[in-house]
Design a protein around this nucleic acid. Structure first.
Lengths: 413, 413
DNA sequence: CAAATAGAAAGTAAGACTGACTTACAATTC
DNA sequence: GAATTGTAAGTCAGTCTTACTTTCTATTTG
């Protein structure tokens, strides 16, 4: 970062930016509070607020009462000064159709419209058209025009390569087309960004989940595929080619067999399902449901001994839980040794099914193989973490744009 | 980062800071160049330079000539405005003594004193005393007083835990004492910092080695122990407890044997030496010398067929090289999958012995097990990377202190 | 109990201060 | 002579200090 130089115009822009940022962060503040927080004088705070209000960026939202002296005016960022849209594309296990969840929020973060639908991208109109229509529907519901949406963030299982202008590693039909995002951006006339779904879930984990006050944490995602997001002080590691967190490819075992195995073969959804049936849980349709029944059995047997279930089946369930925890711990040991996060969060269907019990077992297993006693926890986000993370990320981008625009107007003037 | 607000005093501090930073970065500049780089007006640049010169932070170092018009004055940061010292503590393999390398540089980064010695910390005075004496000797040599050294950075195989005020994971006698660094800081009356040696080598790799223009890179260090440093855009990952990069503990193999193996058992110095003797290289004293002879043999046999050495021995050497490369690639695959660095640098004695040949073999082996084609290279730092990295790091700290001090004087005034 | 009054805080107005900018100009070198 | 460096003088923008008005609460007083 080069330190910047400038004249009084820069100063004005900086002060406007600082005040707006405070309003965005804290919600609403009086002039006096702003004066204390910034160190600026009373007249200056009034001036800057006047300019922000005139520009439509701030509004007066009320007055204090009860205190001595006149009631202070309360200001807040203008909710209508910007909007952010989030789109989550999710493959479904049972059908060839994909789920598309969408949400729209204003500058304060309040969700003003939301929708969910099932789409077959193979037969219907192209992805750009589907997303554009969804955004337009959100706008109608929120009674704004699409031009007021400054940012659309799309979360999906894959990663965007800006060099080739394509989405990589995605299985949903139609989404691999080159230039798709450019077309969408042109169609909607806004900024459109694409982000890996696990990364977005990590953003939600920090802003709404269990990782709020961690310096750093890693989110390991257990779906059909295996995912990892690493958050260092709020910044995600994406990697040189967007490949950071592709831990499914980590080799396991040193080529003893002709067949090479990797982490995906050990902890992918079907691998876990296979592990469950090895332990006698043959009736589960998904890995998550197998784990849920195993976890339930473990809790029940703890509570009042073997009741109803045969000892053999209960033993199999406990062994399944233990074997799964050992495998997970083995994967976490590498992550812990390389980046040493303060916390590792387990996410995805499987982790939710396992609950705190799984976290405990994994934690115990990890302590036997790693000298770092990293905290292990299950995701604390309620709701769709990918959609919420996309909303947070888009909102942050919109706010940042507003704040830096204030500074850049220095040059234009 | 909270955006800051302020008045004209802040502006002045910012402009002073911006100009000084440019002088530090570019070495020397004329007023005209400063005007172009900052966008400030001619009188302002003159004013700011006058203030910096009066404060002893900048000096006029010459004049241009040959151009049309009067010769422009050339300014530079004042070399005497700050000094940084670096200390590298290195265990030696053959004796119980440790090596202590020291260097001192001025604000421009020019090394003004340097020394190296062998010390037995077990019998001689405590580490604090040894380091303090070494710094004082450097100061005498450079003809400055110790008070002019704003920062002393110590690099060693271990990590500093600020919470307990102790150095962790260090084998050199005396260095594990609690409060050692505080005592040293008090004794020298400067800031003293401790950093892991591999992290410092990574800093040197970026500033003087092969990783200068990478977005991100990982440095894997092959000594008796195994080390890893990860640099993301110039910032090192240290981990929540300073444990990032302790890859020796990564478990290998899923408990097939009763004995659990980890990466240290596979790639530590003695493990590599054992691997070499398995392949018939029984006469080497260290892993590095075994690899050097294997690499030399490979190059020679490439050049003009088997000459002198028996086919059997040559085959053993080639097989050793291949087996080692496979093991290294296996370790790198995990790192690549988790952080996806643009480049992985191999460092330490072993990597230097292996040279580009080793890098090629590792690269080829990695491509068979990882979908990311991460570039692999051998360290490009000549000289002692730990000492040079410590010098760079200390110098950066000194410069940063100067720059931020300029800003903080706003409050004092 | 009601009215008057003191006190405190919010916000504004006026003028001072600081720092950078623009314009103009002297000096220097090819 | 032309271009360039550096300075001097005066202007401009933005914030600060000080003083004042207004508004509301709490306390005192009849």
């Amino acid at each position: 970062m080069t330190r910047l130089a400038g004249s009084s115009k820069l100063l004005r822009a900086m002060n406007e930016s600082a005040l707006l940022e405070l309003l965005l962060e804290r919600g609403s503040l009086t002039r006096g509070e702003l004066r204390e927080l910034t160190g600026l004088s009373k007249p200056t705070v009034s001036d800057v607020l006047r300019r922000l209000t005139a520009a439509g960026l701030a509004v007066q939202v009320g007055q204090t009462s009860g205190g001595r002296g006149p009631n202070a005016e309360i200001y807040a960022a203008n909710p209508a000064a910007g909007h952010a849209a989030a789109i989550s594309i999710r493959e479904t296990a049972d059908t060839p159709r994909a789920m598309i969840s969408t949400a729209l929020c204003d500058l304060t973060g309040a969700v003003v419209a939301q929708a969910e639908a099932s789409v077959d991208f193979g037969t219907e109109a192209g992805p750009a058209e589907v997303v554009a229509t969804a955004v337009e529907r959100l706008c109608r519901e929120a009674d704004i025009v699409p031009g007021q949406v400054q940012q659309v963030e799309i979360g999906l299982p894959g990663s965007y390569d800006p060099a080739s202008r394509t989405i990589r590693h995605i299985d949903v039909p139609g989404w691999g087309r080159r230039g798709l995002i450019d077309d969408l951006a042109k169609r909607l006339d806004t900024t459109v960004t694409v982000e890996n779904d696990v990364n977005l879930a990590a953003i939600a984990e920090r802003s709404r989940g269990i990782a709020g006050d961690c310096d750093s944490f890693a989110l390991v995602w257990f779906g059909e595929g295996l995912g990892l997001a690493i958050d260092l002080g709020g910044a995600l590691i994406r990697g040189a080619r967007g490949g950071a967190g592709e831990i499914g490819y980590i080799p396991v075992g040193l080529d003893q067999d002709a067949r090479r195995t990797d982490l995906q073969d050990l902890l992918g959804g079907s691998a876990v399902l296979a592990l469950a049936s090895q332990h006698g849980l043959t009736d589960a349709a998904t890995a998550a449901s197998a784990l849920a029944s195993a976890a339930e059995a473990a809790v029940t047997s703890n509570a009042d001994g073997a009741n109803g279930t045969t000892g053999e089946a209960a033993g199999g369930r406990a062994a399944f839980l233990g074997a799964l925890a050992a495998r997970i711990a083995w994967a976490l040991a590498g992550i812990a040794a390389i980046v040493d996060p303060a916390l590792i969060v387990l996410g995805g269907e499987l982790a939710r099914a396992g609950g705190p019990l799984l976290a405990d077992r994994v934690s115990a297993a990890l302590r036997t193989i790693s000298p770092l006693d990293t905290t292990i926890a299950v995701t604390g986000v309620s709701g769709d973490p990918v959609l919420l993370g996309a909303l947070d990320s888009a909102l942050r981008a919109v706010r940042n744009t507003l704040l830096t625009n204030l500074k850049n107007e220095v040059r234009a003037a």
